[in-house]
Design a protein around this nucleic acid. Structure first.
Lengths: 346, 346
DNA sequence: CTGAAAGCGCTTACAG
DNA sequence: CTGAAAGCGCTTACAG
């Protein structure tokens, strides 16, 4: 690997000049610029990123913090069905990071006491900022990041501070839309499986459903609200449980597409047909939802916009911009074949 | 952030001594060691990783190269159904990388001519090595990495050199197992949908099936071999196509679980029931396969072992070990409900 | 066993 | 406009 020293020598200038040319310094003679570029070309030179990071006191690297650390490593959780939605968002984060010239880093897990060491691990790597995806508000990193003043963008989590913003979907409105859709099909006795109890996102998705029901003058039956983890398995079991207790409902609003998949299996096992006997809806619009049998009616989250805007906001924070505003991204109902008009009472 | 300078001052020693203590140098007095550790503790010191990387001429970072660059960025492809299998393997790669104290890096995409710039981008970041997952042999990075002598481990791709090894599944044997299973159920007219034409892995999976058939004294009908991309959609279409032409087969061996999902949909649309009318098998054993309707008979790849051994081998290469051997990991048949004895001829 | 010094490859005031 | 020098925070021969 050539160094700036060699480039300077070949171009007949100093290392300072080479550096200035590369960093777009204003006062450089055309002659010098030309010679430097020729030398760079001839030597195939590219500045050492590590050396740059050291002297600039900051790398062009964004730390990726995915999911709750308490539940294990980042990528580890990517494989959990509970997180399928985020797999797809990562691509947009990567895309925009690349566009802005930032590397993405999964820092080796720090040992020892948690929040302090996490911050320190980012500091000693000189990361420019952090993208936190689907970490719970109670995750110790949230507070630590806000406190440390490390530029951070939170996805879904509502972290906010002088150096942090969030980007999230309008979960409530999405839930309202899908519930209104069911109401318009004549469903009145609707069961809800919004997600984990106490989880903010699950709560909003439930609330949206309740609002739609209220607007139609219908009260949600508390006995038809079940909570479970975000994954297939727990949703499956929750629906099995529900089915053992009651069958007097005609539609089920699941908190995610993968939960709907679990529900689908439970319904299927009991000989209930979707949408003939029960209408079923999901949330997220993961790729798979159109390959379920039947294809799933769901709510699309605009991952592309979320990922892109998240990185753009993070870069703004890194560059010291003020008043970087959080963003709520609209959601959209996607009607497929898992919902149908309620059957006339027999 | 405290520096080694401050630690040295507080401990009353030189920076050299601080460094030696931290790097486990043999000849250090107990007294010095103790004082240094006290100072480290008091200041919450941890060495600057960037500075270390610069002076050591190598970072503790592994570059992650996922999938074919020609088709876009890395994480971008993670969301493609064709790659669902790898999502799960990443976790084991991460796990072992962390265990060995390495960060994982997704380098910002280099612009310009391809193979040279890719190598350069790794060099200027001083990455210690590279994990290449599911890149095609024709991917320009493969040859460039081998040539450049950067420690590399290839997953699936059979890259091999003085500084590179590979780890892959025994695809052939897996395909043989699953085909033998179908044969033992009485199936004789078996259709194969192994994957993309010309793809090495797809070829092995087909070959395994053919071998099993041959051993049973049955020739594979060339008209029952169809190729398609690894994703749900293309598999779906290939099977639609197949169904339009012929229905004289009783089992379908798909090249992956997601392809089986596409097949399932095609079969379902034509009113064919699995496994009553057609037995169907997949490959990979992704999480979802047990949630398909019916749960899928498939071949399990040992991702845990693959990911772990891959990183261990890479670290061995980085540390200059010689004779690091490639690894073929055994595969295993997993029987679920999508296969059944062939129905007596009507 | 330990310190002073050099050096990793850059950038950036400071002069001129 | 441009160069010499200092410095980013470490590590590692070289002496002693």
């Amino acid at each position: 690997m050539a160094t700036s020293e060699e480039v300077a020598r070949l171009a007949g200038v100093s290392r300072a000049t080479v550096s200035r040319v590369l960093n777009g310094s204003p006062r450089i003679s055309e002659e010098a610029r030309r010679r430097v570029y020729e030398a760079i070309e001839a030597l195939g030179y590219e500045p050492d990123i590590v050396a740059q990071s050291l002297v600039r006191q900051r790398s062009r690297t964004l730390a990726l913090g995915l999911f709750d650390e308490s539940n294990g490593l980042s990528l580890t959780q990517l494989g959990l069905t509970a997180h399928y939605f985020y797999i797809d968002m990562l691509r947009y984060i990567e895309q925009e990071a690349m566009a802005q010239g930032y590397d993405l880093l999964l820092p080796s897990r720090p040992k020892g006491t948690y929040p302090e060491n996490y911050i320190r691990s980012l500091r000693i790597r000189r990361v420019a900022g952090a993208v936190m995806l689907a970490v719970g508000v109670e995750d110790p990193r949230v507070h630590a990041l806000l406190q440390a003043g490390i530029p951070t963008v939170f996805l879904d989590t509502m972290g906010l501070g002088s150096s942090a913003v969030y980007v999230r979907s309008d979960h409530l409105d999405g839930a309202r839309q899908v519930t209104e859709h069911l109401l318009s099909l004549g469903h009145r006795r609707i069961a809800f499986l919004p997600g984990p109890a106490g989880n903010m996102v699950a709560m909003e998705r439930l609330l949206g459903g309740q609002q739609a029901m209220a607007q139609a003058g219908i009260a949600v039956d508390p006995g038809l609200i079940f909570s479970s983890g975000w994954n297939v398995e727990e949703a499956y079991q929750a629906v099995c449980h529900l089915l053992e207790q009651r069958r007097d409902w005609t539609a089920l609003v699941a908190g995610s597409d993968l939960m709907a998949l679990g529900a689908l299996r439970a319904l299927h096992e009991r000989g209930l047909r979707v949408p003939d006997d029960v209408s079923l809806t999901g949330f997220d619009d993961v790729v798979l939802s159109q390959y379920m049998t039947p294809p799933l009616t769901t709510v699309r989250q605009d991952r592309a916009r979320m990922g892109k805007e998240a990185v753009q906001r993070l870069v703004a924070l890194i560059e010291g911009k003020e008043h970087v505003a959080p963003l709520i991204v609209p959601t959209q109902l996607v009607v497929r074949a898992s919902t149908a008009p309620v059957r006339p009472q027999v």
